[in-house]
Amino acid sequence: MNVVERVEVVLPGTVEPEELELRRGPVPAPGPGQVVVRMEATGVSFAEQQMRRGRYYDQPPFPFVPGYDLVGTVQAAGPGVEPGLVGTRVAALTKTGGWASHVVLDAADVVEVPAGVGAAEAETAVVNGITAWQMLHRKARVRPGHTVLVHGANGGVGSLLVQLALAAGARVIGTASPRHHDALRAQGVTPIDYRTENIPARVRTLAPGGVDAVFDHVGGRSVTDSWGLLARGGTLVSYGSAATRDDTGSKQWPVLKLLGRVWMWNALPNGRHAYFFNVWAGKALSKNRFRARLRTDLTQVFTALQRGEISPAVAAVLPLADIADALRLAESGTVSGKVVLVP
């Protein structure tokens, strides 16, 4: 008789990738309103890269199981959950806990994955897709004819931002290392080498009147330069501080500094707008509204995936047990797209 057990990856502290721990135990049972999802795909996001350094803004205390999102099949449903949900492939935004073979979730937090969409493909479109969709359509409100600048155009979020912006009829300028330029040009993107080119000068040459939106995950000096590149009426969406990933000191300070700049810029009477985007914003105020918006937007992302408007890049697929190799690869800066983990 085969006994099914739960396997999870535990982050014990600020450690090197090889020091993450693989633990085994019984599969948990769902409580009222909950489901047990058998994970089929989870991934390595930039958030986990920050978490292992203790640099993510509101990460839980060590030790904990990382994993920002997942795709899997509902294996069991607790009291109060529609029994027909069992056997359904779903996606969920978790923030933590996704790096496990079996995950207990509130049934209200799972979104059905459309038929014909593979687990790894769907996984790359969960947190990255929601982030890209909401920044593009809910914050910047990009329309046909707009010109946008996407930093990290080859990355997990950046590559989806590029594709969704192009689908919306926008002209796209994207920063990336030279190895990704041919692929970006093939999509219709004007690439900029962020390592050797003067990004502000190059963008001003390409868009003398400024750009309508900038999506900046870099932070630091980059976000200030990005603000200066906006046309009147333009929008800056800052959604990270990659430049401070390897810094020491307070993990809150880079975010608080960004928030201060955003507040100051929005107080200026120049017709431009700035946001610091966090996909979890609003959940504390209204969980039901947050869930409804997440369901609506993720459904839009999956629809775009089905239509072929976006094609999320899977950089590599590795077993959960090979988490050290997966993290090293994701942090290397040599891949395009997302590193996906499977059981």
Rank of each mutant, 00 (worst) to 15 (best):
V255H: 05
G156H: 07
M39H: 02
A41R: 01
G337E: 08
F302R: 01
A91K: 02
P269H: 09
F46M: 09
G80F: 13
R89F: 08
G188W: 09
A91R: 02
G118E: 09
N154C: 13
E5C: 12
Q300K: 14
T196W: 07
D193A: 13
E19Q: 15
L294F: 14
S332V: 12
A41G: 10
L258Q: 14
L161T: 09
G84W: 06
R138A: 15
T205N: 04
L268Q: 14
A132I: 08
L161R: 04
N154E: 11
E197S: 10
G240Q: 04
H180E: 04
M1A: 15
V214S: 06
D109A: 12
D297V: 13
D69S: 13
A326T: 03
L166C: 12
Q306W: 06
T124L: 08
D212P: 09
R171S: 11
I323K: 00
G234Q: 09
P208H: 11
H180N: 15
D69T: 09
A267F: 02
P63C: 13
D58M: 13
A201S: 12
V211L: 12
S241T: 10
M39K: 06
H181Y: 12
A186H: 05
V44T: 07
G271T: 04
S222A: 14
G98F: 00
P66M: 03
P191I: 10
R55W: 03
M1W: 12
E309T: 05
G271L: 04
V301D: 03
L258P: 00
I199N: 05
D193F: 10
V342G: 07
I192H: 03
G72P: 08
V211C: 08
Q50T: 09
V127S: 05
T175F: 03
G234M: 11
A125N: 07
T334P: 02
P200E: 12
S241C: 08
P66C: 06
P79E: 15
F215N: 02
L93C: 08
A120G: 09
F302L: 13
A77Y: 01
Q134N: 12
L285G: 05
N288H: 14
V150E: 05
R53Q: 11
P26F: 07
T303S: 13
H181T: 10
L318P: 01
L327Y: 06
E19K: 13
G25P: 10
Y239K: 01
P208Q: 10
Y239V: 01
N278D: 10
G240Y: 04
R195S: 12
V81D: 01
M264K: 13
V44A: 06
E123N: 15
G337V: 10
T147I: 11
Y56P: 00
A176Y: 08
A326W: 00
E19T: 04
Q49L: 15
H151P: 07
A132D: 03
R328C: 08
L136W: 10
S241G: 11
A122K: 01
A316K: 05
Q306N: 08
A316S: 14
G337N: 12
R38G: 11
P12M: 07
G54M: 07
S222I: 05
D325Y: 02
R291F: 01
Q134Y: 09
F302Q: 02
P28C: 09
V27H: 02
D109V: 00
P30C: 10
R23H: 13
L160G: 02
W253M: 10
K283S: 10
V7G: 02
K283D: 04
A107K: 03
L230Y: 05
A167H: 14
H151D: 12
E331A: 14
G333W: 11
